[in-house]
Design a protein around this nucleic acid. Structure first.
Lengths: 336, 336
DNA sequence: CTGAAAGCGCTAACAT
DNA sequence: ATGTTAGCGCTTTCAG
């Protein structure tokens, strides 16, 4: 089985076979209407028999655009890569892109100013970028933004009111989750939050506070769980250690809720009987815990799709809406 | 803040500024030694002040190579994308690649013969590909393989004894996990398996069988859990429904183990007291369950790195070892 | 050690 | 409707 890796056919060859000029072939390849029936047929046939696929590099060079878009994941975020949330985002982006002829380049970027990723993007090697931004400090984002159109996943920490982004309504999500607990008759409602330098963390806490104060309830306990399983467990333990006995907890992510569940079990507390738990995300982990998590679902797949869609519009010169906010949805299972 | 998106500097401009020819600049950019001290210094300075970054398209066109590699995820696999295993693989690949000047293109491929992904890869748009292959039916892989160097994540289903791949030792992993249970004094050991068309599923079951028969123990119960949480739960339920009462279960993935745990809890069975559970993967989910999972860790991040490394060697013309097998490792937590 | 020149495969005016 | 002609930015002989 010798690799007869014949180098791919070129426009030139197609033209020769079809008996037309390169221009004509180029026209049909690019869907121009100004081509006669016969020429079209001949070219299509030639393309078929030669299995012609346009050479991307040549096309990029001539058109001065790459038809590639970058997905940039800040390095700090890679520890969250294990979060199914990302998988859904990526899948969503890819789904949307597969209907276009853009390809997706994946970058995991450090904040290093001399960074390879940054200079790559700045070097005109992609047409646009999607940044799944989580943290406050990402200065390189500004530099990228000056070179190519950008869309953010999640509200940028420093909202410069000209950035495009798509986010879920974290405030409403936090509020609704907490309200659900209140409606169930709970009064001593604690919360385990995400980090305070991430909008998602900040906003969900804000939602909790809104619901609590609207109900005339005092904040019972607020602990930072850092969006990780371990962080959630630690936060739970800290609450327990103070001697506080909440009858319900709004936990700002399922991963953290999972961790909290462990501590609760270890402490001999039953969920939801002794304390109700509501998570956030509706990640796969939500059905793997015991009891399964009641949670606020965020449409991550859709978020990915929309982000890609917005970027595509930007690239096509249209002016899409600057911010898109997706709704969260309560998913009731066992824990609350 | 007007976007002064000046188009990136070109070789030509660098050459002009440095007072040399394009060739010379090209030489220093590509690390040729045959350049005088002065020329070198001048060029480096020019590059610096112009923030010159080579245009990838132009370079690709001239060199006839793209410096891009594709990560191909079969579409069937996207449902497993939620599996943290993938996240780790991707991170590993990227880690290795970031030390090279290759970029990563992400593809989620359907089996459609006229598929965009396939023709893209066949069109010479990437220099090589990594296929995270899981299923039996992926015919398009053959076509890709005929066009570019390939490395597989996991043993290809149809091992054609010339494919490069890197895998973990699933047989040994399954065997060791089962043996651990045996050593703990368990005798009625069941197993929940992965799908029978995936090598990982097949091999882990094989390992279970080896350990059981070596210990002179009969297979207690074998149910297919499909590598998903729900599948694991169903399989567990089927075992329970037969009236069988295993005292331990080797579950071939953590996700499935999570599902099984739920059924066990619902049935009023305590883990590990009534039945010990050992999972596989050491995925993040393993610490989110109650009790936390004892499991066989597979080094997914390393697997990603090695895959990328092998492909890079292939691309550089060297001949790396054809198959690399990584070890699994027992992680003892609470469930067994 | 360095420069000139000829492409790489494609697009995009500009003619015709 | 179609062909001709310049490039796009870089690499790479080939001379010098």
């Amino acid at each position: 089985m010798t690799d007869t890796a014949r180098s791919p056919a070129t426009l030139e060859e197609v033209a020769a076979l079809a008996g037309v000029s390169r221009s004509t072939v180029s026209r049909v390849v690019n869907g121009s209407t100004a081509v006669s029936e016969e020429a079209l047929a001949a070219v299509q046939h030639a393309i078929e028999t030669l299995s012609y696929v346009p050479n991307r590099a040549a096309r990029s060079l001539a058109r001065r655009q790459t038809h590639a878009i970058a997905l940039v994941v800040p390095e700090d975020t890679t520890r969250f890569f294990g979060d199914p949330y990302f998988a859904a985002i990526v899948t969503g982006i890819h789904t949307r892109l597969s209907r276009s002829d853009y390809v997706l380049n994946l970058f995991i970027a450090s904040d290093d100013p001399g960074d390879k990723t940054t200079s790559y993007l700045l070097g005109g090697n992609v047409d646009g970028a999607i940044v799944v931004s989580h943290h406050t400090s990402d200065t390189y984002v500004d530099r990228i933004a000056s070179a190519v159109p950008l869309v953010f996943g999640g509200r940028p920490v420093r909202d410069r009111d000209h950035d495009h982004y798509v986010d879920v309504d974290n405030v409403a999500g936090g509020r609704d989750a907490t309200q659900y607990l209140i409606d169930k008759g709970h009064r001593r409602i604690a919360t385990i939050t995400g980090p305070h330098d991430m909008p998602a963390g900040i906003d969900r806490l804000r939602g909790y506070r809104q619901a609590m104060s609207a109900a005339g309830l005092p904040e019972f306990a607020v602990e930072d769980g850092n969006f990780t399983s371990l962080g959630g467990a630690d936060a739970m333990q800290r609450i327990l250690d103070t001697g506080a006995r909440p009858d319900a907890i709004f936990v700002a992510s399922d991963l953290m809720a999972g961790g909290a569940l462990n501590q609760l079990a270890a402490a001999g507390l039953r969920v939801p009987e002794d304390v109700a738990i509501i998570g956030f995300d509706d990640s796969p982990i939500a059905v793997a815990t015991t009891p399964q998590l009641t949670t606020m679902r965020q449409p991550s797949l859709e978020q990915g799709q929309v982000m890609a869609g917005v970027l595509l519009e930007l690239l096509s010169g249209r002016e899409p809406r600057r911010v898109t906010i997706l709704d969260t949805e309560l998913v009731v299972r066992e824990s609350a």
